[in-house]
Design a protein around this nucleic acid. Structure first.
Lengths: 257, 257
DNA sequence: CCAAAAGTGTTCTATTTACACCCATGG
DNA sequence: CCATGGGTGTAAATAGAACACTTTTGG
């Protein structure tokens, strides 16, 4: 969404392109160097930050819609997006604060009380994980977009606090059943790096020695003949994912301890 | 839904009471004596059987809507209903066959192409398990309601085949994390009975000897001082659930391997 | 040659699985 | 008193967690 004309058209005729009463919200987690962040956006006219989300085109699947949304906000494509829960309780979309004057100032569009946008909406929740160092949060006319530390989030708009809790929970459960990391680590990485990734995502300590055994036993990790010099006394072996086994594990699921 | 007047009002003004574009469908599994069944309904005007479902009132939560739906179809209240996935891909609600003449014959209501009912709809999937011997499928003016053997289902309308597959999968995963049986077994039951229940729901054999150990160790099962005579050489002990521990496990989850 | 970090191996423990065997009961 | 299913116990196998130790490398 960029120009005023586009916004105006969306407000007036969006219901022709999008399915009304249904939206989706994405908890996009960002990882980099042992930090876990969450992408939040802030509408100029809303009081609080919220999860990036949007409507679903009548022609696209839910996952496609989620992907499009993520692309718009992060410029990252083809993430592993996972539907985790749908939210639809009455009262879930109460504004903490809506500054109509500000909204009109920016967009020159009035949102009428009869607008398709104003009616009750249920929302399908997705989550994804990306590397926040390679993404560029896309702000535009009406919204600011920013990474926040996961354990230091501001209070969120609507029921988005609950969504984040559920998304984190779902993500951590999934970590035991699906491999992760192919988009979050460089192509070649050390055991320490993937170890740190898992510790950060799970939010707890993992034994450095036992941790890689299962991944290697499953054939997900392949040891390379290269080493890297990253400082004093340190020249760890490099590993990479076995793409075939990895995709297979994504497809069929595994148990990772 | 009973009378023609009610149906007429629903078709014309339903969008005032219900959220348009959003429905829910319930995979209601029925267990009894080692048989697993699924409740299906058939609209008079549709070619195939489908999952019972309906719209969500603007004033109720998703779970409340699902419960109301199940109550309408089975007369059973307060089931443990679990949201498992939301379906919204375009083309998901293609009729295999819609007999408009038949529909009008029964309801005396025309469904206009501009009706709120005709537009694209996404659907939230729930599943539940009940005892099919104590439920009375409720048929009415427009629909027939019947139990089908899970591994001998007819081809279903819309994307309901996929829903059933996903529901079964979700249910079997959940069985490892939540206790089940309090609505499916008599208040006092034998170890064989609960063993058969788990084998049927999971669709695989479980070692009869090891199976109860975890349940007993967790304190979910309490042994009673009673026995039952159910035939030659057979007088097994009776057990019952520890309601408190059971509810706690439902709340917090356990691992029942 | 030493300190720091990488990586391997061993041990101990807990959990799971398989299965043998005893017991109670009704015929 | 014996055939049958109910129930218990134990041994073997596997998986998980803890941690010691060896190797490598830069200074």
């Amino acid at each position: 969404m960029q120009s005023q004309a586009e916004i105006q058209d969306f407000v007036l005729n969006g219901y022709l392109t999008y399915i009304p009463h249904v939206s989706l919200d994405c908890a996009i987690f960002g990882y980099h160097e042992q930090q876990l962040k969450l992408l939040l956006i802030k509408h100029v006219a809303l009081g609080r930050w919220c999860l990036p989300g949007g409507y679903i085109k009548r022609t696209e699947t839910l996952v496609e819609a989620a992907n499009r949304n993520v692309k718009e906000k992060t410029n990252v494509d083809n993430l592993f997006l996972q539907q985790f829960k749908t939210f639809g309780d009455p009262g879930r979309a109460q504004f903490s604060h809506f500054d109509e004057k500000k909204w009109f100032e920016v967009t020159s569009v009035h949102i009428d009380k009869t607008s398709w946008l104003v009616d009750q909406t249920i929302s399908v929740g997705f989550y994804a994980i990306t590397d926040f160092s390679i993404t560029e949060p896309q702000s535009d006319l009406t919204t600011t977009c920013e990474w926040f530390d996961v354990d230091n989030l501001p209070p969120l708009e609507f029921d988005h606090d609950e969504m984040v809790r559920d998304a984190l929970h779902a993500m951590r459960i999934q970590l035991y059943h699906y491999p992760i990391g192919i988009n979050l680590l460089p192509e070649k990485f050390t055991l320490s790096e993937i170890h740190a990734l898992y510790e950060t995502l799970l939010g707890k300590k993992l034994d450095i020695s036992n941790f890689p055994k299962k991944l290697i036993a499953l054939g997900l990790l392949k040891k390379l003949d290269e080493k890297r010099s990253i400082g004093a006394h340190r020249s760890p072996h490099l590993y990479k994912f076995d793409k075939e086994k990895y995709d297979q594990a994504l497809q069929n699921g595994v148990v990772l301890s």
